[in-house]
């Protein structure tokens, strides 16, 4: 149980993929303009990462390890994640049209999101169990959502400000992102103290 809690805390706060490890910056900057879309993207990422963690763990443990194909994990995981996202999209379109419309363009965008790949590769690297892998994927998704929604609020304040002309638009947004990421640096070392890891 402590391990599960530790994974969740680490993935959401101390090792937050977006703000500490700087992965998935593209959707982080692209989808944080509006709160609604940030929420939609977060939901989609959480779902896809949980599913991808489960699927890749099964494939890794029961297909790749017995055949000695561990060195192919990156390319196989990319393949599996892309196929999985496509499948989820088809499934949602058929059985949950409201959710499909709510997620919209964000669902296919996740295919190219490096966070999903990072989470699945980390599962393998840390030799997590099936449950731990799923929790890791879920928590990484929640961490992404937290970063996205927090930054969405920061960005609204930035848009109302009047920075120097040369900083308008993306430059000031990047500065704001850097400052937001600094706040997450303050979680460093907390997990070791809390969970004795």
């Amino acid at each position: 149980m402590t391990k599960i809690l530790s994974i969740m805390f680490v993935m959401i706060f101390t090792e937050n993929y977006v703000l500490v490890q700087f992965l998935g910056i593209c959707p982080f900057l692209g989808v944080s303009k509006k709160f609604d879309s940030a929420l939609g993207m977060s939901g989609a990422v959480i779902v896809v990462m949980s599913l991808a963690s489960a699927a890749t763990w099964l494939i890794y443990t029961y297909v790749m390890v017995p055949n000695g194909l561990e060195y192919l994990s990156t390319i196989i995981f990319i393949l599996v994640i892309a196929a999985l996202v496509q499948f989820v999209e088809i499934f949602l379109k058929r059985y949950m049209p409201p959710l499909y419309r709510a997620l919209g363009v964000y669902l296919p965008l996740i295919t190219t999101n490096c966070i999903v790949l990072a989470a699945t590769l980390l599962n393998v690297e840390e030799s997590y169990t099936f449950l731990e892998s799923c929790v890791n994927g879920f928590a990484a998704g929640v961490g992404f959502g937290l970063a996205l929604i927090l930054f969405c609020g920061v960005r609204k304040a930035v848009e109302n400000a009047k920075p120097p002309k040369c900083f308008e638009g993306l430059p000031i947004t990047l500065v704001a992102a850097a400052l937001t990421s600094l706040t997450f640096m303050s979680f460093t070392g907390m997990a070791e103290k809390l969970f004795g890891g």
Partner: peptide, 12 residues
């Protein structure tokens, strides 16, 4: 790799 890709393709 081709086998896994083929399985994914067929499923899709």
């Amino acid at each position: 790799l081709c086998a896994i890709a083929a399985v994914c393709g067929v499923v899709l």
